[in-house]
Amino acid sequence: MAERKAVHQAADKLAFLLSLVPYLMDHDQVGVADVAKHFGVPEEQIRDAVKLIAVSGVPGATGTYQHGDLFDLAWDNFEDNDEIVLTNLVAIDDSPRFSGREAAALIAGLQYLSSLPENADRGAIASLMDKLSRGASTLPSQMGVEGAETDATLALIRESVAAGLQVEFDYLNSRGEQERRRVDPLRIESMDADWYLRGWCHVREAVRTFRLDRISNPLQSTSPISFSAKDVQLPDTLFQGSADDFDVTLDVASAALPLLSDYIGDAAVTPTAEGRVITTIRVAHLFSLKRLVAGMPGVVRVVTPGEGRQAVAQWAAAALEMYEN
């Protein structure tokens, strides 16, 4: 396992070297800091890579790596001024092609984005996908992603984010309470087919995440936002726990475990009978717990607390009653 990881790192480093050389060839004299910034990596990584490039080359006619068979570097400039000037070049002329899988990943990403309102120019997207295909060394793997679903709510919020204006809407929260919210929209996020708004809620005076399909009667306000994305620390994860959350122990089919990964976090997962595990999640309210569990019948079972079990049983029984009458 560790060895496999080391190989992966070496492959990433190789990809970096093969990408760095053509960039340096196009930039006759360039500071380490600028290159680091361009590639978005630490300066030390650039220095290490340059030192390796400078002593690398081809076996050459003698098969012994003679001086002219190696890259060379203006060492004084490198060591004194932190600048890179390659003085001898070998073997490499241009940037490498994408692999078939790399091209496929970007093409599938573009497919997902293609239905967003600002990407309405289908011709431009198609031409970009075509370039990726032609720029790959093998046929891109067959991968397809349905375009993200968009609606009027998304368009209105998107406009409001861009304009820096507040939005107001009715929202049914995870406790089942319907309430008019006034929000500084900061970022729109999606997960597969679901869309979320993250913003500063003026009612709660805190950063909150809203599911777009729980938003009704949205309106763009004329008031500008009071906090911008720069002022507010948006946590990386969509959902944050709160002090009021409580622990729920679940019995889960292990194959379904990934579907709960947002809730489980780093809680312990203990295997029990064949194919089942016991784990703990934190939830805000029985309102959301019963919905979560009722959406995975047979796959997830609440072990404790008893109120949790009751809430699910009553929720399902109330529904069954409608069919029995």
């Binding site: 990809a15 960039y23 490498p96 970007l106």
Partner: peptide, 14 residues
């Protein structure tokens, strides 16, 4: 990882 490497190659083009 593959997307990241593809972007690296794009950066290679400047």
């Amino acid at each position: 990882g593959e997307s990241r490497r593809a972007m690296l190659k794009l950066r290679s083009l400047g």
